[in-house]
């Protein structure tokens, strides 16, 4: 993988929400150009990891390094510079309902980069095409789109500024199998066409096997194993085995 250059590094991250320990001394590296998938049951802190990388949450202890800079010590303006290299695809797309598809995708181009509208329209059309959408959607509001379309628009918004890193939070959850597969293909395509580094959080094992170069499993606030999809599939760890086979028999309690 590109000579294994590390682009994201979490160092001994801990995070509590109230009395609940969500992340317990987690360390994780992501190499340039790879797709790392973080798997684990709902509510174990997968999205919390993503939010730390995006600088949306600050750890109680530990360091977050993105592209050679430590996020937790930066001012907002500096974090914003880093965010130029980063796109985030939210679980439910998180499109701004008051804005049109065009205004959503072009949000940063218009507001932050001061790009002329005519130029932004061209960029947005290109990005929509890249995520497999037609440009007749430009003037629609998010509420008029289907779930799958919203996710694609969310992806188009994330890639509008040509990021080097894309963070995906549950990209296939709530989608039908066909739309899910299309999203998986998109993630692969982004890696191939744009050479981006991706971190994907999911509990959809089919998607994980398809898009991952490496998989990390998180349980009880800790990373209990990392490896290639093949290694994870063959893992003898009882927790990993139970999770990837989707079994109720095993050490994890069924809540």
């Amino acid at each position: 993988m590109n000579g294994q250059k590390t682009i994201i590094k979490l160092l001994n991250i801990s995070k509590n929400f109230g009395n609940r320990k969500v992340l317990d001394n987690i360390s994780l590296e992501v190499f340039a150009g790879e797709t790392l998938v973080i798997i684990g049951r709902s509510g174990v802190g997968k999205s919390t990891i993503l939010k730390h990388i995006a600088g949306l949450l600050a750890p109680d202890a530990g360091e977050v390094w993105v592209d050679g800079q430590e996020l937790t010590r930066q001012k907002e303006a500096e974090v914003n510079e880093l965010r130029k290299k980063m796109g985030v695809v939210f679980q439910y797309a998180a499109l701004f309902d008051s804005l049109t598809v065009f205004e959503n995708v072009a949000f940063r181009l218009l507001r932050d980069f001061r790009m002329p509208v005519a130029e932004a329209v061209e960029v947005v059309k290109k990005k929509l095409e890249l995520v497999g959408l037609k440009d007749n959607l430009l003037d629609l509001k998010p509420a008029q789109l289907s779930g799958g379309m919203r996710k694609r628009v969310g992806l188009a918004r994330a890639i509008a500024v040509d990021p080097e890193i894309i963070l995906y939070d549950e990209p296939t959850s709530g989608l039908d199998p066909v739309s899910s597969e299309a999203i998986n293909d998109l993630i692969l395509e982004m890696q191939k066409k744009l050479g981006v580094t991706s971190v994907v959080v999911t509990h959809d094992m089919h998607s994980a096997y398809k898009v991952a170069n490496r998989i990390a499993m998180i349980y009880d606030g800790k990373i209990i194993g990392t490896g290639t999809p093949e290694e994870i599939k063959q893992s003898q760890d009882p927790y990993i085995h139970q999770f990837v086979t989707g079994s109720v028999e095993g050490p994890m309690p069924v809540r």
């Binding site: 939010k51 995006a54 600088g55 949306l56 907002e76 914003n80 965010r83 130029k84 980063m86 796109g87 985030v88 939210f90 679980q91 439910y92 998180a94 499109l95 701004f96 309902d97 949000f107 940063r108 507001r111 932050d112 918004r157």
Partner: peptide, 18 residues
């Protein structure tokens, strides 16, 4: 409030809009 619970407020941060 709706923007907060649907992560639109987080999205604003990631798009460099405070």
């Amino acid at each position: 409030g709706t923007m907060q619970v649907t992560e639109q407020v987080d999205a604003l941060y990631t798009l460099a809009a405070n």
